[in-house]
């Protein structure tokens, strides 16, 4: 009787170990946010970026932009150090930020070093079908308000001031001869031959100084389905084999058990 109880206990134990694995939910990345980092402070050194004390970006120089990184939804502490100085110097920048699941963000270090700040914007990840989405960010400290539009034509984005990021605008796909100009029409940056494609999302960040302005055109997103395609009907699937293999193993174990237990009771 004792034996029976102990083997029952073993059954419960083994089930306890295997059941959670067998029945665990499929965990997907559903509770993650996406964050990318942009170094837009013209006189700041190369930096390391730490999130909650962990290095996520190392050695990003001025004008560097990272790809999106996954971050759990919730509040995080973002610290920016001059490259290699974590533990030796104070961060040049420290900020708390709350990110939501399924959202994308750009965290930009902007302004001159003496007044550096972290600007966090929420990014679009879905373009409209057949159209492109574009927005403009003015990250040039000391530069006047700007318009962005075709050279000599009507502005597509007007009156953007430091450190503003416009909303996304839908534009027809195509090649544009664009310029960044002051609101009174003086050209600051020539962007001739800028091609934008349908289904894509772009951010044009103006960075640098008033004397040497530049534009960083990033592709935030492209046409993406919400799920993978359904590419099979199961006509050649080998799923039925699982049952057969398991049954064979089960029968083998049963036989082994029978021999083993009989031997023991004979002894």
């Amino acid at each position: 009787m004792k034996k029976l109880l102990s083997s029952l206990a073993a059954v419960v134990l083994i089930f306890g170990v295997f059941a959670p694995v067998a029945f665990a939910d499929n965990h997907s990345g559903g509770d993650m946010a996406m964050v990318r980092v942009l170094h837009a402070s013209p006189d700041a050194p190369a930096v390391d970026v730490y999130v909650d004390g962990n290095a996520v970006v190392e050695g990003a120089e001025f004008k560097a932009a990272t790809d999106y990184m996954e971050l759990p939804a919730g509040e995080h502490t973002i610290e920016v150090y001059a490259a290699g100085t974590m533990g030796e110097q104070d961060p040049v920048l420290s900020a708390d930020a709350t990110v939501e699941a399924g959202m994308a963000y750009t965290a930009a270090a902007i302004g001159n070093l003496d007044s550096i700040e972290l600007k966090i914007t929420q990014d679009e990840t879905e373009a409209s079908e057949g159209m492109a989405k574009v927005r403009v960010g003015h990250f040039i400290p000391g530069a006047p308000a700007v318009d962005v539009g075709p050279i000599g034509g009507d502005a597509l984005f007007s009156g953007a001031e430091f450190p503003m990021v416009t909303d996304y605008s839908e534009l027809e796909a195509g090649t544009y001869d664009l310029e960044v100009r002051t609101t009174d029409g003086t050209q600051l940056i020539d962007l001739s031959g800028t091609t934008i494609e349908s289904g894509k999302v772009y951010s044009a960040f103006a960075v640098g100084t008033a004397d040497s302005p530049d534009v960083l055109l990033l592709e935030d997103s492209s046409a993406m389905p919400s799920s993978m395609p359904e590419t099979g009907f199961g006509g050649a699937s080998q799923n039925s084999n699982t049952m057969a293999y398991a049954a064979i193993l089960g029968v083998l174990a049963m036989g082994a058990g029978l021999v083993l237990f009989r031997k023991r009771s004979e002894a």
Partner: peptide
């Protein structure tokens, strides 16, 4: 400078 990050698509 130790550089370690995936750059954005420019």
């Amino acid at each position: 400078i130790n550089k370690d990050y995936e750059p954005a698509v420019v």
